[in-house]
Design a protein around this nucleic acid. Structure first.
Lengths: 192, 192
DNA sequence: CGCGACGTTGATTTGCCTCAACGATTGTGG
DNA sequence: CCACAATCGTTGAGGCAAATCAACGTCGCG
C-alpha cells in the first residue's frame, strides 16, 4: 500500500515515541483521501466523524452566519490536523464546514478508531491531548487578538504568523480569517 | 485534613472512575487556597505553574491590551477550572491575568504534579483531555460568535449561557467579556 | 459623612461595512 | 486558440454600529 505517511509520522514522533508495531496499528486506521479544490470534507448539519491530517494542499474550517457570510476559523496547510472537534467530541451536528482551498490530500481518522487507539496505544492519548492543548492555545490567542487589536494590526499579525499562506491563498480568505470584508482588507493593504 | 473536595470529586467522577487509592493520590496533590476579592492567582509576565479548580466564588482570566484595557476571556464560577493553559503548557510568560471577582476558594494543581499524575493515574489523562477539548470547543464557539454576532446578540447569548452570573458580577465585567465598552452595554440593556 | 467605584445618558467621532462600478485574471466551452 | 463568463481585487461614496469623551446620579463602604 502506497500512502504518503512520512509527514504524519514525523509529526507524531515529535511528540511521542512508539514501537514499530504501534505505529503500524495507528497507520492501519488512517484512510487516505484526495480532495479537489472546493470539495467538502464536512458540511454543517452533519456529525463530524473524522479528524483529518493534511499531507498536501490546504484546507479551511469556516462557519456560515445567518446572513450567509463565511467566517474562517482555521487554515490547515500540510502537516496540520483539521475538523470540527466540537462535533466530533459531542457527536452533535457540526456548525462548521471544512473544505479544500486547493487540490489536497488528507489522512482521515474516525473518532471511533481514535478512541479505540487510545485503548490499544495509550501513548497516543498524550499526542492528541497535546494537539488539543495547542489548538486551545491558538484559539484563545485569536480571541484575545480579535478583542484587542484593530483590523490593521490583525492583518500584520496574520502576515507574521502565516507568512507562507499569504501568497498561497486568495485574499478574500484572509479577510474572512481576520474578520473584515475583502474590500476593507484591500484598503488596508493599499496603505503603504 | 479539612478541604472541601466534594465539588471536585463530583466533577472528576462525571468523567472517569478511579479507585479510592487513586482518588487519594490525586487529592494529595491539590493545594487549597483562599482568595480575597481582586487577589491575583496569576499576573501576566509570570509563568503559570498551577491549574485552579474553583470550589467557591468566581474567578476571571483577562488580557490587558496596549491601551490598558481589560479583555475577559473566561469566567470560572464554582466547579470550573481556570488558568492560562498557554503558559502552563509552553512554560512561557503568561499573557493573561487571573484574579478573584469575589472572595473565593480554589484547589491548585501544579503542572508538574499534573504530569506526574498522568504517569501514576493514567485515567486522569483522559479527564484532562476532555476538559481541554471542552475548553477548545467553547473558545471556538466564542470566536465564531465574536465574528458573526452583533453586540446585542452577544449579550443575549451571554444571558442565556451564564444566567447565574448576570446578577452576581459587576456589569462592566460582562461588557469586557462580550467585547464592548461598559457605556455601550448600558445602552443595549436600556433598550427594552 | 465623604470618597471612590459603578452605571447611566448624551453629543460627537470613527473604524469598518455596504453598495456599486470597474479592471484584471482565471477558467471554460466551442 | 479564442470568446466569454465567472471570480477576484480595487476604488470610491455614503452609512451605521460602536467607541470616545464628558457629565451626572447612586450606591456601598471606610
Amino acid at each position: 500500500m502506497d500512502m504518503n505517511t512520512d509527514l504524519f509520522l514525523d509529526n507524531m514522533r515529535r511528540h511521542i515515541r512508539l514501537t514499530e508495531e504501534e505505529e503500524a496499528v495507528v497507520l492501519s486506521k488512517l484512510r487516505p483521501v484526495k480532495l479537489k479544490r472546493r470539495e467538502h470534507l464536512l458540511k454543517q448539519g452533519q456529525v463530524a466523524r473524522d479528524l483529518a491530517f493534511v499531507i498536501e494542499g490546504c484546507l479551511r474550517a469556516y462557519a456560515l452566519d445567518d446572513n450567509g457570510f463565511e467566517h474562517i476559523l482555521q487554515f490547515a496547510p500540510a502537516g496540520w490536523w483539521i475538523s470540527d472537534m466540537s462535533s466530533v467530541i459531542s457527536r452533535r451536528d457540526s456548525l462548521l464546514n471544512v473544505d479544500a482551498i486547493k487540490p489536497s490530500e488528507v489522512l482521515l481518522l474516525s473518532r471511533e478508531d481514535q478512541l479505540s487507539l487510545f485503548d490499544d496505544v495509550p501513548k497516543l492519548e498524550r499526542y492528541f491531548r497535546v494537539l488539543t492543548e495547542n489548538g486551545l492555545v491558538s484559539s484563545r490567542m485569536r480571541l484575545i487578538e480579535n478583542l484587542s487589536l484593530t483590523a490593521r494590526q490583525r492583518y500584520q499579525r496574520f502576515c507574521q504568523t502565516y507568512p507562507n499562506l499569504i501568497n498561497e491563498i486568495p485574499q478574500k480568505y484572509i479577510a474572512s480569517f481576520i474578520g473584515v470584508t475583502p474590500e476593507f482588507l484591500s484598503k488596508i493593504r493599499s496603505e503603504r
